[in-house]
Design a protein around this nucleic acid. Structure first.
Lengths: 234, 234
DNA sequence: GTGGAACCGTGAACTGGTTCACAGAGCCCT
DNA sequence: AGGGCTCTGTGAACCAGTTCACGGTTCCAC
């Protein structure tokens, strides 16, 4: 998408659950301020504490949002794919970034700079209101994750995470839903706030029960209901 | 404050870290849409999942924001005092409340209804932008709490919480900073995601070390540095 | 193809925090 | 002023998840 990126990006944004409701002309305006760039897998986009203040939208590829503890322990907060928007916090308040963002596989991103956008925002309250919606959504998500980690124990947390991953990244296959993010058990541990070994033990139990099968960089869920059941009861 | 509440409320809001920067006329406008009411201690303002969509501001008194797990375990997310604003999420997106709010001690609240405010918002982008700031602030706070709970263990979490409480609710006394929220060790447990007994054990150690003294419904911190030190190392 | 590197599987010992159980302290209501 | 409450202190058994340790797999680069 070397030169046609604007069209693709517009199509993508207009499919966004909130931004999509904006009138066509406003979307064009927005894109007028934006830039498109490609990134290679492994690249770091920014780190927690960095001053950057751009808003980013994933056009294609996969992005990992994470944080490191003082002792180097990592937590993956989210995995993003095409259509997802991130970096809104620093973008909106101009303060340091709240987490790390890195490219998981080759990616194209839309970038919107704070300074080129703020004046525009004042004149377009509709856009501001949409953004309020985006932030509320994000806030609900984070609060939810918070509750999960204090209330649920590992099996439930892991089940929930896998279900969420299937929603965003699962392909339907004859044998079941396949998640083929390059997802090591280590990473799954980081997503659930737990060690590699603990994840392994739970996954193997589920494999024995026929709920899923484990492959190298992928998982196939045969019985999503099995996972849902774990969420419901003790 | 039976009839003069508008003046008091205005004074309070103008001291708010973000809303205070709004021009005087806008503040008056805002207050024109607001209502004042008193609440008795123990009253529930709303529960998670309720449809309510008002924005609330504490004029005086104390409010507890919390959630319950499926099995009835409670987590206190925050304690609010005069000048604090809450309920913005449901207010802004019109969806169900994300947590419970209850009155800890007799309280006066300013209430702003979503429907009477939304049209106004479209015409005053400056207010929308301030609200974006408020949401960013909240998002940073929640993300922070999230990291605390996965990265820090109990002593550090508790130390951090106590320091935060002294900031908002501590009185300076000859012997040290006194927190006299009616704060049972049970509640402290709820705030740190841990049992009453676990809190007790840590507090007693600190008492023996002279960092603080425990009274019935209060704590006196003699050496805040002691707590800060716990945050820094292992 | 082959040698390393990164990932997976699993078991044993350990640990921070829970659960249960019970005894004492302070509080408030009549 | 005394009887019940809720809150505190503490110890013993227990448990989910960690840490450590090590052997086996799969992948990829040369």
């Amino acid at each position: 998408m070397p030169e046609t990126w604007k069209a693709t990006a517009k199509a993508m944004l207009s499919r966004h659950f909130l931004l999509g409701q904006l009138p066509d002309s406003l979307l064009d305006d927005l894109l007028g301020h934006a830039q498109f760039r490609r990134y290679k897998r492994g690249e770091s986009l920014f780190r927690k504490g960095d001053p950057g203040d751009a808003l980013l939208a994933v056009i294609l590829g996969k992005i990992r949002i994470s944080t490191l503890s003082a002792k180097g322990q990592e937590v993956v907060l989210n995995m993003l794919g095409p259509g997802d928007v991130f970096g809104e916090i620093a973008f909106l308040d101009g303060k340091p970034r709240t987490a790390d963002a890195a490219v998981v596989e080759d990616t194209g991103l839309l970038t919107l700079e704070r300074k080129s956008f703020l004046p525009y925002l004042e004149e377009n309250p509709k856009v501001a209101i949409k953004l309020l919606g985006v932030l509320c959504e994000r806030l609900r998500w984070v609060s939810d994750s918070f509750e999960d980690i204090v209330f649920l124990e590992l099996p439930a947390r892991l089940a929930k995470r896998l279900l969420r991953l299937t929603e965003n990244f699962g392909h339907q296959e004859p044998s079941g839903l396949r998640i083929d993010l390059k997802l090591s058990q280590q990473e799954l541990g980081h997503m659930t706030g737990v060690t590699r070994e603990a994840v392994n033990k739970v996954l193997r139990i589920w494999e024995k029960e026929g709920i899923l099968t484990i492959e190298r960089a992928a998982l196939t869920i045969h019985q999503p209901e099995g996972l849902r059941a774990i969420l419901e009861n003790p």
